[in-house]
C-alpha cells in the first residue's frame, strides 16, 4: 500500500514574542501513515496532539522537519496551494468546531462544496443526506449560536466529510457527544474508511473511540511514546490494551472520567 503521509523529525517550538520563552510542543516526531489506514492518536492533555494534527494537516508549519503527503513536501508549499490542497483532499473535524457564526448549519456544511463549485442541487441533496446521518436535520436552518456543543460537533463533522475527502483528520471529534452520537460518528468514519478507503487520523482521549482505529499512536511531552496495532484483536480486547497503556502514561484516563 502507498504511503499517504510521512512525518520526518518534525519539531515545533512555540515562542512567546519578545519574551524569549520557548516551549517545545513537538520533539522530533516521525511516523508514516499508509493509504486507507485508520490511526488514533492519544496522549495526555498538552502532549502536543493538536499541534501535531495542525502540522500534518497543513494548518500550521513545523519549526523543523519534513512532512510529505502523497509524496509532496507540504512544508515547502505556498500558502494558496496549501489552501487548495486542504480544500480538495482534506477533511478536518476541529476540536473547537470552527463553525462560521454568520452561516446557518446547512450553509456551514455546504461551504466546502460551494467552494468546490459543485452545483446547487447536488449541494442541497448532499447536505440533507449527511444531516440525516448525523441526526441534525432539524437544526439545519439554525445559526451556530443557537445550537448545543454536541450539535456543533456533528455539524463540524458533517462539513469535514461531505466532500468525501481522501484524508480525514479529527481532533477529538467525539469530545462533546453522547455515546449514541459518538458511536454514529465513529461508524460513519469507519464506513468512509472501509468503503471509500479514506485515510483517517483521529486524536482522542477516549479509549472507546480509539478502539475503532486499527493503530494507535501514544504521545507524551511532544514525543511518540508508543505505537499499538489492533491486529487480529476484537474491539473489546483492543479497548483494554489501550486502557492499559493509558494508565501507564498517566493523565490520559483521568481526562476521560
Amino acid at each position: 500500500m502507498n504511503v499517504v503521509l510521512e512525518a520526518k523529525n518534525v519539531s515545533k517550538i512555540y515562542s512567546t514574542k519578545g519574551k524569549g520563552n520557548e516551549y517545545k510542543a513537538l520533539d522530533n516526531v516521525s511516523f508514516t501513515v499508509k493509504e486507507g489506514e485508520f490511526v488514533g492518536i492519544m496522549g495526555p492533555s498538552g502532549a502536543g496532539k493538536t499541534t501535531l494534527l495542525n502540522m500534518i494537516s497543513t494548518i500550521d508549519s513545523p519549526t523543523s522537519g519534513e512532512i510529505y503527503i502523497d509524496g509532496n513536501n507540504i512544508v515547502k508549499m505556498k500558502e494558496d496551494k496549501l489552501a487548495l490542497f486542504r480544500r480538495n483532499k482534506l477533511g478536518f473535524i476541529f476540536q473547537d468546531y470552527n463553525l462560521l457564526d454568520s452561516l446557518t448549519v446547512a450553509e456551514n456544511i455546504a461551504l466546502p462544496l460551494a467552494l468546490a463549485k459543485v452545483n446547487a442541487k447536488e449541494i442541497d441533496n448532499r447536505v440533507k443526506k449527511i444531516a440525516a446521518t448525523f441526526g441534525i436535520e432539524r437544526i439545519l436552518n439554525h445559526y451556530p449560536y443557537q445550537i448545543s456543543g454536541g450539535q456543533k460537533q456533528r455539524c463540524a463533522a458533517s462539513r469535514a466529510i461531505i466532500t468525501n475527502p481522501t484524508l480525514i483528520f479529527g481532533d477529538e471529534p467525539t469530545g462533546a457527544l453522547d455515546s449514541k452520537s459518538a458511536t454514529d460518528l465513529l461508524e460513519s468514519l469507519t464506513q468512509l474508511n472501509e468503503k471509500a478507503r479514506a485515510t483517517i487520523l483521529l486524536v482522542t482521549h477516549d479509549a472507546f473511540a480509539a478502539s475503532y482505529c486499527r493503530r494507535v499512536l501514544f504521545i507524551k511531552d511532544g514525543r511518540i511514546f508508543k505505537e499499538l496495532y489492533k491486529e487480529e484483536r476484537s474491539r473489546k480486547q483492543f479497548f483494554s490494551s489501550i486502557l492499559a497503556i493509558l494508565s501507564d502514561i498517566g493523565g490520559g484516563v483521568s481526562d476521560v472520567i
Binding site: L100, L103, L113, A114, L115, K117, A120
Partner: peptide, 20 residues
Amino acid sequence: KKRSFYKGMNIFSTSQLLYR
C-alpha cells in the same frame, strides 16, 4: 437563489453582509 449563493465565496460574503 441557491445557484449563485452556493457559488464559491458568495455563500460567505452574502451571509456575512446579512449578519452584519
